[in-house]
C-alpha cells in the first residue's frame, strides 16, 4: 500500500521507487531526483521537494550548506505567450 503511494505527482514517482533507489545508491537528493525524475515535472518540485529530500537523507547525510535540489526560473507557471510572444 505504502509502496504504491505517489510522491511526485507530475512524474508519478512512487514512495517505493524512491526508497528503493535511495537504499541502492545511498545517494544525495539531487542524485535521487536525477535517477527517478521525482521533482522534474511541470510544477518544478513545489509539492514533492521536501519529501524527496527527506527520503534521500534517511540513507545519506544531509548537506546543510547549500540547497540540494536546485530552483530554476520560472518558479511559477507561466504561459509560452506571456514568456515570449512576438506581435505580428
Amino acid at each position: 500500500m505504502e509502496k504504491e503511494m505517489i510522491i511526485c505527482r507530475c512524474e508519478e514517482i512512487t514512495y517505493g521507487k524512491l526508497v528503493e533507489t535511495a537504499n541502492t545508491y545511498n545517494c544525495t537528493s539531487r542524485e535521487l531526483k536525477l535517477r527517478t525524475r521525482a521533482g522534474m515535472g511541470y510544477c518544478g518540485g513545489r509539492t514533492c521537494r521536501n519529501m524527496v529530500d527527506s527520503i534521500a537523507y534517511s540513507s545519506s547525510e544531509r548537506i546543510s550548506t547549500e540547497i540540494t535540489l536546485k530552483y530554476q526560473p520560472p518558479i511559477r507557471p507561466i504561459s509560452f505567450g506571456d514568456l515570449g510572444a512576438v506581435e505580428r
Partner: peptide, 25 residues
C-alpha cells in the same frame, strides 16, 4: 506537515543557504 521558509527567489538570485532545523529549513 508544518511550515518551511519559501525561499525560491533568494535561491534563484544566488544567495548562499544554510539548513537550520530550528528555523524550519
Amino acid at each position: 506537515g508544518g511550515l518551511y521558509p519559501l525561499a525560491e527567489l533568494a535561491a534563484v538570485a544566488g544567495c548562499p543557504f544554510y539548513h537550520i532545523e530550528e528555523l524550519g529549513g
